[in-house]
């Protein structure tokens, strides 16, 4: 390991390391307080909390090592020294849009009363249309609103139809 630049800045490593230490410690505490089952003849070494406790301890220790390493690295190269990746941790609008669509579909579109085929068709069509348009705006694709709308609807309906038919008629899965 030659000195920096590291893929991730020491500052961000330190932050995650602290999360691990906290998580590990919380798990150790929870495991310690977990029912020991002594009423059913368990010894300490068969208690349900033994294993998570050991693993939580390991996580806290490894987190501590990572924190220590990020301190060493920061002293060596500075807190924000990282290999340039041309991207930041801040979500791009594109990412926010995609993540939003994914979550709305999976959390609200499935199993919440809306028929599966309908929400699927809507989701795919919306995704295709919005991203085709976004790509056109930055010049990565050609076409028109109208063409994209047609493409979007075709993709949406086709996906919904094929998925619904295959799962319900072929695999006998009752879709939500």
């Amino acid at each position: 390991m030659s000195g920096g630049p590291y893929p991730v800045a020491p500052r961000s490593d330190l932050n995650t390391a602290l999360v691990w230490v906290a998580l590990g410690a919380a798990i150790v505490v929870a495991s310690w307080r977990m029912e020991r089952m002594t009423a059913q003849g368990a010894d300490l070494y068969t208690a349900p909390g033994l294993w998570p406790g050991v693993v939580g301890l390991a996580l806290a220790l490894l987190g501590g090592l990572l924190a220590w390493r990020s301190l060493v690295r920061a002293r060596e190269a500075g807190w924000d020294a990282a290999a340039p990746r041309g991207e930041t941790l801040v979500p791009t609008p594109r990412f926010a849009l995609a993540a939003g669509l994914f979550l709305v579909y999976a959390l609200l579109g499935v199993g919440r009363g809306l028929p599966f085929w309908l929400s699927t068709a809507l989701f795919v069509a919306a995704f295709v249309f919005l991203f085709r348009r976004a790509n056109r705006k930055v010049g990565d694709a050609t076409g028109s609103d109208r063409g994209d709308a047609v493409l979007a609807v075709v993709c949406g309906v086709a996906t919904a139809a094929v998925v619904t038919l295959v799962f319900e008629q072929l695999f006998f899965v009752r879709l939500p």
Binding site: A98, L101, F102, Y105, A106, V110, G111, F116, T120, F123, V124, F127, V128, L130, F131, R132, N135, A141, L151, C155, T159, V163, F167, F171, V173, R174, L175, P176
Partner: peptide, 25 residues
């Protein structure tokens, strides 16, 4: 094939596939 077409279809498969294993939301 443009990515905007592939991505949502794969996501639908992720959702429906996860559900299909044991029919659990």
């Amino acid at each position: 094939v443009p990515k905007p077409v592939i991505v949502p279809i794969i996501f639908v498969l992720c959702v429906v596939g996860s559900f299909a294993i044991a029919s659990r939301l």
